[in-house]
Design a protein around this nucleic acid. Structure first.
Length: 506
RNA sequence: GGCCCGUUCGUCUAGGGGUUAGGACGCAGGAUUUUCAUUCCUGUAACACGGGUUCGAUUCCCGUACGGGCUACCA
């Protein structure tokens, strides 16, 4: 394989949703697999849509996901600058080449005139059939063009799309796709403000940055015809990058592609990390803040539209890179399945070490006002990790490890606790537990078993009392493990408090 | 409207001219478990439709339907 160079080229117009992350991921995986170079390029040619902070958001999102560029703004590289607004002169230069070679032309039509043309004919297209009746250097005489230019009149440079040509695209995902040039319009290459459009800048930068593979969303497939025409115009068609157009990510339910609003509408994340804007409607919660492990998100995203062809589903980034191939990318849109995303996260949490989990959840626990020791937190994580799906579940499902419960499972107590006698039965157990010198799970269990048989009770009569007495709930880790972690004094305190509470149930 | 792309269980998908059409999520049931969860087992459910080509089509071709994308001096 040649020296692969791929790029992720987002526009800094706001938060980048999960589809963008997947595009970046596939580019990254291809580069990683073949020892190539993954480049980040910021396509900020639309000054009206520029959003401050968006570039930093994109970089942080990628970093969180473990997709780190080798070249890009702030990352170095020999093909910079990597922000298109810093490359303005380059685009002008090449746009002029288009004019000189007769493959581009100046157009003086104002946006208002074009709008008028469109409202007069809804099928209006600026193309080979209409361009001679519009105001441009093809229809106007040379003196008039020179005069307008000299007078500083606003103009754009358009691509002169040739007639009667067939544009064939060999797409790595879709195979051969063909377009008739007569269907294509004369796209603007250089805008009135001197900035290039996406099409010009993209083609030029891919060429100048020696990009070998263009992996991008399917929404770009139609304009790829124009891009090929541009490569042709510059004489680069033989060395064009290879194209791969990715299937879109669809809404979880209903129809259409996934949109920003779907997240807040359905209460699920569709962004990698949170985006905070002045208005709540434009602020979004991310996978990170939802409590996802970035590896789980990446694993999940990798499978939206790609599949290794084996039955393995859990992949590290390295394994993903090793297994990845553009040929195995699917063709049809993939519906965003949040249940599957959660399943991946659960798998990752269960596979994480207690130490890793402790580190991740410490801020969540501390935010609740508790400063557990590292040892305590690790044991806690170990006991809870098979019982959570998202990181915040550690707190929601295990708060009783850190503080007294306020509500408890009344149904169990009504069934197992008798106000006219249970207290007398269980107080000796508390006392016996207090006699233990080594308060470990085994010793506690032995003590409880001995008590149970002497008292003529069944395990099922004693365990629920202990469990609910200690934690308030019937759900949770093994009782004796929890007792060992909580310690003798704390268990005694909790049980006495609980017994008082239970007596008040009726 | 025009151009382009797509269509296998509810969802993500494997597969591919002759298969009991496989896996995963979800859901349902069961086993294990002091609870919950984990784990294991079982079940549920799919080749959009119509024509060809063929001995045989879910697989190849053509239509139709449906879905999606693009159709800006936005990317």
């Amino acid at each position: 394989m040649e020296n692969i160079r791929v790029r992720f080229a987002p526009s800094p117009t706001g938060a980048l949703h999960i589809g963008g992350i997947r595009t970046a991921l596939y580019n990254y995986l291809l580069a990683k697999k073949f020892g190539g170079t993954f480049i980040l390029r910021i396509e900020d040619t639309d000054q009206t849509r520029f959003v401050p902070g968006a570039e930093a958001y994109i970089i942080e999102s990628l970093r969180w996901a473990g997709i780190v560029p080798v070249e890009g703004p702030g990352f170095g590289g020999e093909y910079g600058p990597y922000r298109q607004s810093d490359r303005k002169a380059i685009y002008l230069d090449y746009a002029m080449q288009l004019i000189e070679s007769g493959q581009g032309y100046y157009a003086f039509d104002t946006p208002e005139e074009l709008d008028a043309a469109r409202s007069a004919d809804e099928n209006f297209k600026y193309d080979s059939k209409t361009r001679l009746s519009l105001k441009n250097s093809l229809s106007l005489n040379p003196e008039e063009v020179t005069r307008r230019l000299a007078a500083g009149e606003a103009y754009v440079i358009r691509l002169k799309v040739p007639e009667n040509e067939t544009v064939l695209i060999q797409d790595l995902v879709r195979g051969e796709v063909s377009f008739q040039s007569n269907e294509l319009d004369d796209k603007v290459m250089l805008k009135g403000d001197g900035m290039p459009t996406y099409h010009l800048a993209n083609v030029l930068d891919d060429r100048l940055m020696k990009i070998t593979h263009v992996i991008r969303g399917e929404e770009w497939l139609p304009s790829t015809a124009h891009h090929v025409l541009l490569y042709r115009a510059f004489g680069w068609e033989a060395e064009m990058p290879r194209f791969a157009h990715l299937p879109l990510i669809l809404k979880p339910n209903g129809q259409g592609k996934l949109s920003k609003r779907d997240g807040s509408r359905l209460g699920i994340p569709v962004f990698p990390i949170s985006w905070v804007s002045e208005t709540p409607e434009d602020s979004f919660v991310g996978f990170r803040e939802f409590g996802f492990d970035p590896h789980a998100m990446v694993n999940f995203m990798a499978f939206m539209g790609w599949n290794p062809g084996t039955e393995q589903e859990i992949f590290s980034m390295d394994e993903l890179a090793a297994a990845f191939s553009v040929e195995k990318i699917g063709k049809s849109g993939a519906r965003f399945d949040f249940d599957k995303a959660k399943w991946f996260n659960q798998q990752y949490i269960m596979a994480s070490s207690n130490e890793e989990l402790a580190q991740t959840i410490r801020p969540l626990i501390e935010a609740q006002g508790h400063q557990p020791t590292e040892a305590f937190l690790c044991s806690f994580a170990g006991m809870m990790k098979e019982r959570v799906v998202l990181f915040p579940d550690f707190w929601t499902n295990g708060a009783y490890f850190f503080e007294d419960f306020t509500v408890f499972d009344e149904a169990t107590i009504r069934k197992k606790w008798k106000t006219d006698g249970s207290r007398a039965i269980f107080t000796p157990l508390v006392d016996q537990l207090d006699q233990l010198t080594d308060y470990n799970a085994g010793a506690v269990q032995a003590c409880v078993e001995a008590f149970t048989s002497v008292a003529g009770l069944k395990f099922g009569d004693v365990l629920p009392i202990l469990r609910v007495g200690l934690t308030g709930t019937m759900k949770g880790p093994a009782v004796f493990d929890m007792m060992a972690l909580l310690g003798k004094a704390e268990c005694r305190r909790r049980l006495e408090r609980a017994f008082d509470l239970f007596d008040k149930v009726y």
